[in-house]
Amino acid sequence: MQVVSISSLKGGVGKTSVTTGLASAALAAGIPTLVVDLDPHADASTALGVSPDDQLDIGRMLRSPRRAHLADNVVPSGWVEHARTNGANGRANSTALSGAPTSVLDVAVGSAYTGIYDRPDLGRRDLRRLSAVLAGAQDYDLILVDCPPSLNGLTRMAWSASDKVTLVAEPGLFSVAGTERTMRAIQLFRQEFAPNLSPAGIVANRVRSGSAEHAFRLSEMESMFGDLLLSPHIPEQANWQQIQGAAHSIHHWPGDSAKNAAALFDALLQNLLHPHGLAQTGTVRNRSLR
């Protein structure tokens, strides 16, 4: 089982879109996956089409983590039924379409209640709350934690429970600067709290192919972060809000644009789970932003 936090210091860079894109690729590949929606806005829960009944949301599970009984409180994503019934025009993996036990995409539902833990002063005991909840997650091969866009308590709680951290950045000045600061924060956090935590890499999201500024910033990110900048980059997707609003996965949306984006997330998931030559120190090269 791998636990991967999806993080960003800056809001609005498409962090939740990357989380759900990776979840879509995992479902298509037949990888039993849990998405933990740790952002108080709970956008990932909405996009994943969950319909909770009497289950506890993740905030209330964090309140009493040793009595949370995770397996009783996760909610199946509505995407699973889409995968079984429509086949995404043949794009999804046959294992995912067959209704086999590996067709698992569950959600620990987000809520505003988690906001009580999004403070900068959480102690070591509080930082272990998510780890205690996820102790009951043995049925999953992959856990994706959608973090809030901050470095407060919830993100640090997620990092404490994670094997890897994936950062999301747009190729723009402020986003790249925020990514550099976040990389340094990860280094400090590893030293003090989580020595086994490693950077899974940086996803360049919402890339515009015709933008000279984006091309310049991508080159700058390659110089600053080296192999930590993951490939492929994710282009700006014009219909992404429509897809998320319909609570569909990118793999189950018609059209060539969605098909191409789905293939990119397939490749990105493979590179995230099986990195080749990726540096594990998370060292940021010494280059100032221009």
Rank of each mutant, 00 (worst) to 15 (best):
R125L: 05
A68W: 08
M157S: 00
L144D: 01
L151K: 01
T33Q: 10
Y113D: 15
A23V: 08
G99V: 04
E170A: 06
Q242E: 15
M224C: 08
N260S: 15
T20V: 13
E180K: 13
R66I: 01
G49S: 02
L289V: 01
S162K: 01
G90L: 11
Y140V: 05
D141Q: 12
C147L: 01
I6V: 15
N271W: 08
D227E: 12
D118G: 06
P65T: 03
N86F: 11
T166M: 13
P148Q: 02
T33P: 13
A204P: 06
G87Q: 04
L264N: 05
R125Q: 09
D266E: 15
M224A: 09
C147V: 02
A185N: 12
N93P: 06
F174Y: 10
S175C: 13
M157T: 00
D139H: 04
T95I: 04
E222A: 12
D37M: 07
N239R: 10
A194C: 01
Q241C: 12
R124M: 10
R208N: 15
H69C: 02
R156Y: 00
S231F: 05
L268F: 15
N196G: 07
A112D: 07
F216I: 06
R91D: 08
S94D: 08
G136A: 12
Y113E: 13
T283N: 02
L197E: 00
G14W: 04
G21N: 05
S131P: 03
A132Y: 15
V74W: 12
N152Y: 14
S150V: 02
A92F: 06
M221R: 04
S111N: 05
S94A: 10
G245T: 07
S7T: 13
P40A: 14
G178C: 07
S162M: 01
D141T: 07
A185Y: 09
G59Q: 04
